[in-house]
Amino acid sequence: MRRKLTPYLLALPGWAWLAMFFVVPIAGMVSLSLTSGNVITGFYQTFNVGNYLDAITLYSEQLVRSLLYGLGATLICIVIGYPAAYWIAFHGGKHKSTYLLLILLPFFVSFVLRTISWKFTLSDNGVVLGTLKSIGLLPADFAVLNTAPAVVLGLAYNFLPFMVLPIYAVLERMDHRVVEAAHDLYASKLQAFLRVVLPISLPGVFAGGLMTFIPTTADYVNASVLGGPGNTMIGSIVQTQYLVNNDYPIAAAITFVLMGVLLIGIFSYARALGTERVMEVQAK
């Protein structure tokens, strides 16, 4: 009997941790999201579903925008991150860890500082735009800072390693002989990539996609530092409702709406990629 209990006992700290830092706060927030009142009178449980209706009707624009920005940033991360991960895994040789370190290097600097430094880089008369303007490649009034592309690029930049590392891990773990096997079985280099390397690395892309899409969608620092009017993301709304307006119920409701939308998105994404297959390859 005792032997049977042991695994559960070993898992106890994990469960306690989850309960304390996940279940209790989430339950508290769900309860909060259904209350009415204000910070002076206090918030009372009224099962006020109207908070959710407000969250959706008032902030659908920012919500959709956040999803689009997150999606854009994720796609950019795939386009940039996959070749980088591929190159390191297959051609990195002895220096793989050095290259990985290089990918991670900017991330030894604080997230906000990195974003701020982009502000200097993207400035109208800064290193990049100033130079391009002075040699006449860009019109004088061209601007990147405080636009949607600046926000999306900033997001992609800040979350790139979350894409590179999972893809790298899968590619690195993969038996590289399968590429030779594909060539041996008459596949061209492109076919070998499309038919063998890419499908095998899909779990990495899947994981990287999640790890990029979720935080980018919920991010607000990039939008507030690099964005302009009309680039507000849902994270900023939550922050404002929480800290400035002290409207905790609506802030909690927005959070759960975002969570719900993300979960739906993730499940359909997993289904599209075929989770069963994905898990199988990962288990190997």
């Binding site: 038996d175 002989r177 399968v178 030779e180 096997a181 594909a182 060539h183 041996d184 079985l185 008459y186 596949a187 061209s188 063998v196 499908p199 095998i200 899909l202 297959r277 199988e280 390859v281 190997k284």
Partner: peptide, 20 residues
């Protein structure tokens, strides 16, 4: 001639089967 244009096939030591 590249391997994919050679009329020989190989059985790898690790088998190198396509896991997916």
């Amino acid at each position: 001639v590249a391997p994919n244009h050679r009329d020989v096939n190989m059985v790898f030591q690790s088998y190198a089967l396509f896991p997916h």
